[in-house]
Amino acid sequence: MTSAIPTQGASGKTRDRDSLVRFASRNGIYLFLVALFAVCGAISPAFLRLDNLGNLLSQFAPLAIVVIGQSFVILVRGLDLSVASVMATAAVAATSFSGRDQDAVPVLALGLVIGAATGLLNGFLVTKRQVSPFLATLATMIVLQGVRFAWTHGAPSGSVPPIFRTLGAGSVDGIPYNIFALLAVAAVAIVLLHKATFGRQVYITGGNPLTARLVGIPSDRVTIICYVISGVLAAFAGLILSGFVGVVDNWVGKGFELNSIVAAVIGGVALSGGRGTLPGALAGAAILVTVFNAVLLFGLPVQFQIIIQGLVIIVATAFYARQSA
């Protein structure tokens, strides 16, 4: 693999031009998001209506929660393809309870345990067995899928307790509750990554694993924790999403594995590790959700949602997250 480190000619850049470039490259993603909003609003006034914005937010929340976990993993040079499988498995497991609110705690606990266990397994395979993250998480994804299907015999029924329904689909003054769940998660995650010592360990581990080893950072542990964070957040998002949808099936969260990676990458989290921020990744998620929403709103056939999704992935990445190799 080529190194992602620019080594040429960057030594004595003139300051103003340099800082301009840096401003654009640091904030390009947010500028793009604002521009996207403006364009969508200009094309369709309905886009900026409160009910649509609320709708947008409630779709944003589950994806954003998964993106946060995914970003932790990508920062340590990993990748988590198992998130969607974890989401569905947590949701399916939830239906094995009574479906009443008094079971909310065990439902939540079981879901989070599933997420944590998957993350632990992923992290173990990646660090102790040196399996490539793509494969390790692909394998756990498939295994979980098999377990889930065997358990439900292909046809799960039931729903999550009403409290998740409220959390996933309810709103107050047009602001969906799930946004509050996201805000809480995001606040903790941002503090953890950008203020706490653990976050620095994440960046050093992802930036140069050999350095991490030399300076005595327990990088295996740091990496495993990142996968656990991803698993736990995916499970949580799965419960919220199934509350949003109302019914649980085997495919809760379908597409989230790829969308979460894409959102993080659009948001500037480099697949080569050690580069990117959570606010950037969240902006990436917002861009994706906005595009999906706009396609429907503009009355385009739903197929265009997929086509435009593909194009946005490529175009946005080409703009903001070029490999510097």
Binding site: S3, A4, I5, T7, K195, A196, T197, F198, G199, R200, Q201, Y203, I204, G207, N208, L210, T211, A212, L214, V215, G216, I217, G274, R275
Partner: peptide, 30 residues
């Protein structure tokens, strides 16, 4: 230093304190 010594994407401060994170941390925060 390129391959082993430095986390190239990080800044001077982060690289200087990398081996003494506990000295710049208080209760888990930087």
């Amino acid at each position: 230093r390129k391959a082993q010594g430095l986390a190239m994407l990080l800044d001077v401060a982060a690289n200087v304190t990398a081996s003494t994170l506990d000295q710049v941390s208080r209760r888990g925060f930087l």
